[in-house]
Amino acid sequence: MKTATPLCKIAFFLLLQLWLAAVQAHAFIDHSQSKTGAELDVPPKAIVLTFDKSIEAAFSSIKIVREESQKVIATGAAQGVEGESDKLVLPLSELSPGEYHVYWEILARDGHRTMGDYTFVVR
């Protein structure tokens, strides 16, 4: 039983940290309004990403690229949504039919960065 006491102390300390810690973590994308891989009849008016945790919108970004030409679609900056700290929104002007690639990079409240990308098609 030589190793039991040190391990128990470590386990207790960790559990204490769990209880005391502010519970924020990596933010991973929960869903996007224009779903990953979707084919849409109506072009979206905005890219709306919802994450599983609160994010720092001011330090997060969304970029949309037309796949065919690899041209970045000119938009404003991505914005947060008041009262919904898990959302990031990029307003869009009308998208013509084609395939689009969305790239996002966000900073979670805990300081961890996550990134991702997905495509959708406007028919």
């Binding site: 960790l14 940290q17 769990l18 810690a21 502010a22 805990d110 300081g111 961890h112």
Partner: peptide, 9 residues
């Protein structure tokens, strides 16, 4: 733990 206590442990 890096998610539970990102600013400490």
């Amino acid at each position: 733990i890096d998610d539970v206590a990102p600013k400490s442990l």
